[in-house]
């Protein structure tokens, strides 16, 4: 993909011919997709289609077998990120949540979000021991920022609660809060409403819209809940057996015969 094309589409994430093989299994097979700045896009597909694997390739958990992943960074330059370590990719402005919730269970809710703010803190070990005024201020700043993020996700009444003790829906929201704390420009949500009831799902739909509209963060989400996907996303990619089988607006995807076949079986 040439630089020109990237810029003309204003895409901030570009995946080109991505493949990921686990031994003999090609979990992803030549997938190309792009995410435009400021959109809410969805990645759907039957179980085992390879959706989470794509997230893992984007965020550096896996090194793709083939293909490239590139982003338009904060300075407007295109750079490849495939093969980089997850922490480096996070520094570049990509944050994610996990399908099988991965909170820091024995830490408090506030501390979970403070971990997200980790890289906005400068003090090293020696400053931590000496605890000079700049370190104290920094620490206080992070506590307040984290609190505000929790407030935004309506988790502020739980700040001192142990993360592992939260109800399921709250745990999912806390994962989003923690990801937001790393200051991303692109947020990758892996099944954010899995296990939530209708009410919670409705609320999260609002939250997703707020994150995009107010924080101007682009969102790519994986979801099985079709009503959420259709309501919230502007563009949808459909994956089946590791290959892209369709791309389009919710309206188009709903009546795409390939998609219907993939979901209902032959």
């Amino acid at each position: 993909m040439s630089t020109q094309q990237l810029q003309s589409k204003q895409s901030i994430l570009e995946i080109e011919n991505l493949s990921m093989a686990f031994g003999g299994l090609r979990a992803i097979d030549g997938v190309s997709m792009h995410i435009d700045e400021g959109e809410i896009a969805a990645l759907i597909g039957p179980n085992g289609a390879g959706k989470t694997t794509i997230f893992n390739c984007i965020t550096g958990v896996y090194k793709p077998t083939e293909g490239t992943v590139s982003i338009r960074n904060k300075n407007g330059q295109i750079e490849h990120i495939h093969g980089l370590k997850p922490d480096i990719i996070n520094h570049k402005g990509l944050a994610r949540t996990f399908q099988n919730i991965r909170l820091f269970n024995n830490m408090t809710v506030l501390e979970n979000v403070m971990i997200g703010r980790h890289n906005s803190l400068k003090a090293g070990i020696f400053k931590a021991i000496v605890r000079d005024s700049s370190t104290k201020e920094e620490e206080q700043r992070v506590i307040e920022e984290s609190y505000l993020i929790l407030k935004k996700l309506k988790l502020d009444m739980y700040i001192n609660e142990t993360a592992g003790n939260l109800p399921y829906g709250e745990q999912r929201r806390l994962e989003i809060a923690r990801a937001l704390a790393t200051d991303p420009f692109l947020l990758l949500l892996d099944e954010p409403v899995a296990g939530m009831n209708a009410q919670e799902t409705k609320e999260l739909e609002e939250t997703i819209n707020i994150i995009r509209d107010q924080e101007h963060i682009t969102i790519l989400l994986i979801e099985h809940d079709m009503s959420l996907v259709m309501n919230v996303s502007e563009r949808i990619y459909v994956l089946d057996y590791g290959r892209l089988i369709a791309e389009g607006t919710p309206h188009e995807i709903k009546r795409n015969p390939d998609v219907i076949k993939a979901y209902l079986g032959e």
């Binding site: 997850p86 996070n90 830490m107 003090a123 923690r178 790393t182």
Partner: peptide
């Protein structure tokens, strides 16, 4: 005590809790 209650200590604990999530939060393992 000071290390425990600091950025460094929290990062160590995050690593104990979940290495993958810890890395995803931008922490160098």
């Amino acid at each position: 005590r000071r290390i425990e209650d600091s950025k460094v200590g929290r990062a160590l604990e995050a690593m104990r809790e979940d290495e993958i999530a810890c890395q995803a939060m931008g922490i160098n393992l």
